[in-house]
């Protein structure tokens, strides 16, 4: 049973979803201007937003929602309690349980923070903790709202690897404003602005159509090259090494012409 949203209009943002049928698995970006209803859409799928008309059928799926403000989701005293409280009726000494717990602790860098108070954590650490909570709960659907916010380069790349691995058999919806990060590993996504498309679009084309104004000189350069019809890939600017190779080969072509 797929998740199906029909004829819903979200409050304030006014985002209209005529019909949306969730893909069974894979990573999909959710992009759009501020206030366009991206977070509200995730709240709707998490069953946390009531709407006056239309229907939302979650099809019995378990949904893990990592909110924009991770603090909203922390309720326990320590990092260990935050992760373990849903498992109070489980035999926690079972080797399989310990093994997957250790893997989660290692994956999210929580070993050294294990007995710390959740309120002593930095914003980036809180975000990692909430990700770890859902990673361990293992729902079928992950809703990640600005997951890289507050994370340094190392963690941005670790969370990317985690999403790639998870998206093989889970549905991951990722709200972000970080184009280079999203383009580096997600190929499709939804654009939120007034209406939500039923079919996801190619993310490179979405970047070209919507990411304005450019946020770095490299992005400006790429936009110029694409506008002029140069033979470059829409997402090649995301990796500076690939971009440099492309530029050098264009330059060599031009030198030969002259």
């Amino acid at each position: 049973m797929a998740i199906i949203v029909k004829d819903v209009t979200l409050p304030f943002s006014g985002l209209h979803i005529a019909q949306w049928i969730a893909p069974p698995r894979g990573a999909y970006a959710v992009m759009g201007p501020n206030g366009s209803g991206k977070s509200q859409w995730l709240a709707l799928l998490a069953g946390q937003l009531r709407v006056r008309s239309g229907t939302v059928d979650l099809g019995g799926h378990r949904v893990g929602w990592v909110m924009q403000q991770p603090e909203h989701q922390l309720s326990e005293e320590s990092v260990s309690r935050e992760i373990l409280w849903p498992f109070s009726s489980v035999k926690q000494n079972e080797p399989a349980f310990r093994q997957s717990l250790d893997a989660v602790k290692e994956r999210w860098g929580l070993e050294d923070l294990w007995e710390h108070s959740v309120w002593s954590l930095s914003t980036g650490q809180k975000r990692r903790l909430v990700c770890a909570v859902y990673d361990f709960l293992d729902p079928e659907v992950f809703l990640l709202d600005e997951p890289t916010e507050g994370l340094d380069v190392t963690w941005k790349s670790r969370i990317r690897d985690w999403i790639i691995a998870r998206s093989e058999n889970h549905l991951m919806l990722i709200v972000s404003h970080d184009w280079p990060w999203v383009l580096s590993f997600v190929s499709q996504g939804y654009w939120c602005e007034g209406v939500l498309d039923n079919i996801p679009q190619d993310l490179g084309e979405m970047w070209y159509a919507h990411s304005l104004p450019p946020s770095s000189p490299l992005e400006s350069l790429w936009r110029t090259l694409c506008e002029r019809g140069a033979p470059v890939g829409l997402r090649d600017w995301v990796d500076p090494h690939t971009a440099a190779q492309q530029v050098v080969s264009l330059w060599k072509t031009q030198s030969n012409v002259r």
Binding site: S220, T224, L225, R228, H241, A244, Q245, V247, L250, W251
Partner: peptide
């Protein structure tokens, strides 16, 4: 990006100040 371009295509170095101009020259 700029470091690699400078190394592999030195004549492009002055253009690295202006992304739009660089784009026009390349294509």
């Amino acid at each position: 990006f700029a470091e690699q371009v400078r190394r592999q295509a030195p004549p492009l170095s002055p253009l690295l100040e202006n992304a739009l101009e660089l784009g026009r020259v390349l294509w």
